[in-house]
Design a binder for these strands. Structure first.
Lengths: 242, 242
DNA sequence: CACTATTGTTGCGAAGTGCAACAATAGTAG
DNA sequence: CTACTATTGTTGCACTTCGCAACAATAGTG
């Protein structure tokens, strides 16, 4: 007989199924990722969560991210589903619960094997106030090339997310979610370079962006520097073209 | 109390989780997909299956496909995980079971909501003997542009699989799994055209393939036609280069 | 041996890219 | 106001790739 009591994981969520998120932000200098640290363990992992029994997968991920970042309308993309048995680390999960002052036995289902749907998100680094959840101490930005060791297969997740993002970098308007409304070509180039991990040619990038038709040129921006002022641009939107 | 009896779905498989496969083959003329038809229903769907409680996701999909096609070493690729609540069609599932002479009540868990990991596979059309499973009448090839109406969200799956395949067409050696060991450039071009759904320029395609370094030229093939005989090629492999 | 169909190859213009250079500022120091 | 510097907008040039068209090289056939 099931025990009656407060709702448990098993009551609310689909068993064996989780999502994890690689949240990308651009600091103006570097590409960064949101990493959480579990209470009293020194263990780091990607933010993730579970899917409600009556919830779309998409919605679950979106909701989870909104809770953690305070942002709505996040650009989300699935990149891979991780289903290896080797991911299964019940001891680690129990230790995380214990370190937060919980009794693992009160969380049936949480120590089972999980299959996780990996997503990546692009967000505006400066608009976020990361909020840790109950199990975690902190949720903080780390440069993609200076990540702490991550639990489970989360390092592989980051690598795969990066590959997927790089593949899509020119298919999608990368800057839309990582830059302010108005930006200079140089700022856009910095974003592309941070994602691709390589320097791009200035003249070629400028030509490509200007001839792509995705940008609208606006007024100049006087930065106060002793040099020519760059134009600022925005991405074309409905009715914004031409 | 759980009833003791023969092992059920719930005992053996992860609940709420499935995979579906878009199996591509090239007939020499057209790109085709394996579609199964359920007993006595006139309903068509993609072949799919479930993941054992102690089985890698990858392994499960591979094993399922091997059973159905008789092939081993199938090139498999994940393209999307479908997690919408709208996929949930318990009545349809019950009807499929009933039409096969089963009592739906004997299959607890099968009528629940499912999240499905979509894969596509490239296989050699001529090497396959499709084998239907217990629930299905037939497993047959259909041209991608002449599919019957499919159950659930399987038509969306096909479309997404096609998009994913097209994206990868030149990143991966598409012909490896869809052509015999040795083939002509023309045959390779036909495969690419079938996948992309458009004619390609003969001279350009030839140049691109020859300069790509992925092909090894072998002897000529005398087809008996009144014209110049084409060379046959194979893909470069370890120790096969140069 | 002429004739036809198909394949291998090449020439040419169009388009895109990296690299280098030039032109046009915007501020600063004198 | 002028010289000077740093940065941005733009252009010229070589190189590559691609579509298109044409030519060269067969392999059969009548």
């Amino acid at each position: 007989m099931p025990q009656s009591g407060p709702p448990t994981f098993v009551d609310d969520y689909l068993p064996h199924l989780a999502y994890d998120c690689v949240v990308f932000g651009f600091s103006g200098e570097r590409l960064k990722i949101l990493i959480l640290e579990y209470h009293n363990t020194g263990w780091f992992a990607l933010p993730g969560g579970f899917i409600g029994r009556n919830e779309d997968l998409n919605e679950a991920v979106k909701k989870g991210l909104e809770k953690r970042t305070g942002l709505t309308d996040i650009h989300l993309e699935q990149f891979h589903t991780f289903g290896s048995l080797a991911r299964y680390r019940p001891d680690t999960m129990r230790e995380i619960l214990r370190a937060s002052g919980h009794n693992p036995q009160h969380f049936p289902g949480l120590q089972d094997r999980f299959i996780s749907v990996g997503h990546y998100a692009l967000i505006n680094y400066h608009h976020v106030t990361p909020k840790p959840d109950k199990l975690s101490d902190s949720l903080e930005w780390y440069p993609v090339d200076e990540l702490p060791p991550l639990l489970f297969d989360h390092e592989e997740m980051v690598q795969r997310a990066l590959v997927a993002l790089r593949k899509n970098v020119d298919a999608m308007l990368v800057g839309v979610n990582m830059l302010p409304e108005r930006f200079t070509i140089k700022e856009l180039q910095r974003v592309h370079e941070a994602i691709l991990g390589e320097k791009l040619n200035r003249a070629s990038f400028q030509r490509r962006m200007l001839s792509s038709g995705i940008l609208v040129r606006h007024e100049k921006r006087y930065s106060g520097g002793a040099h020519k002022a760059p134009y600022v641009y925005s991405f074309v939107e409905r009715g914004d073209a031409d």
